[in-house]
Amino acid sequence: MASISPAPAEVPPVSNAETVVTVRGVTKYYGAVHAVDGVNLEIARGEVFGLIGHNGAGKSTLFKMMLGLIPLTSGEILIDNASVSGSGFRAVRRKIGYLPENVVFYENLTGLETLQFFSRLKGASLRDCAPALERVGLTHAARRRVREYSKGMRQRLGFAQALLGRPQILFLDEPTTGLDPEAIREFYVILRGLKAEGVTVVLTSHILAEIQERVDRLAIMSEGRVQAIGSVQALRERMDLPLWFDIRIAAEHFDAVRSALGHLPISAIEAHDGHVAVQCRRETKMAVLEALAVLNGKVLDLHVREPSLEDVFFGFSD
């Protein structure tokens, strides 16, 4: 496995767009426990940024500090150029949408009343409440009390709540928890639309496969520190994890594959059920493809499996 270099002190966002979220040298200590330990981040306007990590990695603590919900032990967090611990942060809160993990609402209110309550608190227009419910597909349940809502419906109501007041920055903590696959797909469609409108999205998720195609960049947190930061592709390259070739070929040609690749630094080769799986490092990828060309006509199909976000994640967080 490749050696992991420590995350640099300043990591610029992918584009040179305006920075919306700046996290500088942030720590949070609970006694001897270092929940967050020297984190630096910059998130650009319109970026979809993922924060991933094991339970207890410090991502929820960092999330709450970014929202000004808990004080920082040291360091500085700026959202839209306002310090989260300053008095000017109240105005910034109006531009923020927040969906907490396991969102909880008042059971005695209806879905519409819930949105109206939060809309008033945010100083947003009450006229936006019904469209927000429609956007998440809850119009039919607008006048039902939240106590009758399923977990997925509550999560959708939470998302509608986060969209009130047309926020410019969205903080979504495990936003797809409890949603069925159809709703997850709809959620990311809405997210794409928001990104197109220039909304910045910071989200956490433990379903790595789900976010790997949907975030511009992500930070992997472990033991209170950012272990790696970048696009999924950049992280894959930095980790230099091996990739797999799945070659579909008749069983009698298995040995031909072995001999064609014999001169290359292949880390594993497995044959079963009309398939040969070949594992190699990224730099050997093209050489393997060239070597397979000699088997012209015998290879029935070929598929390259890149390391998944899971592989990258475990590589950085272990």
Binding site: R93, P100, V104
Partner: peptide
């Protein structure tokens, strides 16, 4: 305890 305090405090309210 319900878990609704964080959401309330994320609103523009002290």
């Amino acid at each position: 305890e319900r878990g609704s305090l964080d959401l309330l405090l994320s609103m523009p309210i002290t």
